[in-house]
Amino acid sequence: MKSLEATLRTLRDSGRKALVPYFMAGVTEDWTHHVAAAVHGGADAIEIGIPFSDPMMDGAVIQLAAERSLALGTTIDSLCAQLSAQDLGLPLIAMTYYNLFHHYGLLRAAGRLSASGISGAIVPDLTLEESDEWRSVCDQTDIATIFLVAPSTTPDRFARLAATTQGFCYASARMAVTGRASGDGDASRVVEAVRATSDIPTYVGIGISSPSQAARASRYADGVIVGSALVDLILGGATPDDTERFIAGFRTALDE
């Protein structure tokens, strides 16, 4: 079992609902301070978005964040160097599109991420069917490969995806790209479909933008992912203290 999954299973067994905020790496000069603030605010793992020029699965907020980050010169190497300088003490999960890893070299990319403290990767345009090569290099580097399931996922695919995903299973609440829909939508049905075939921790994302939505989803899921709402706050000029308060609001709602 990958170390990420061991950590997240232990977390679930302790009765705590996982809170996973998403940050776009390099979106501001002080982005790592925001990440540290989220840790203080009560996050359990951090998703690190790596900016790509053509984010097919992302709505306007994360598109804008990616554009800003790229304009500031963010690369896999630059963000890994910044992360290596931190000791955040909780799991880091990379999220980006396959071309960046393909271009960097799969084994080299997995090695670079791993050496920077990243223990999982979400690649939303990498289908289960195309993932053999990536999964095999991840197996050499203790990077967990995390798959998404969606409201449109068919029963046979739920079974195969739940059996293949590592760390946790990412349940999309909505048939939408990030930041375009609000509310947990079909998430309970999606989580139930994963549960019917696997005991992997299952987190809900795409549609969770407020503490009350997070609390609602946590009644049936093991955790939540908060992306665009947080990125929007940071794009709007939030300080790390604002980020900490934002995350603490979600923490309180999840712990109630």
Binding site: P124, T127, E129, T153, R157, S172
Partner: peptide, 11 residues
């Protein structure tokens, strides 16, 4: 090949 979000795979 096929490199799309899971949400589009069934389609």
């Amino acid at each position: 090949g096929r490199f799309v979000p899971e949400a589009l795979m069934p389609a």
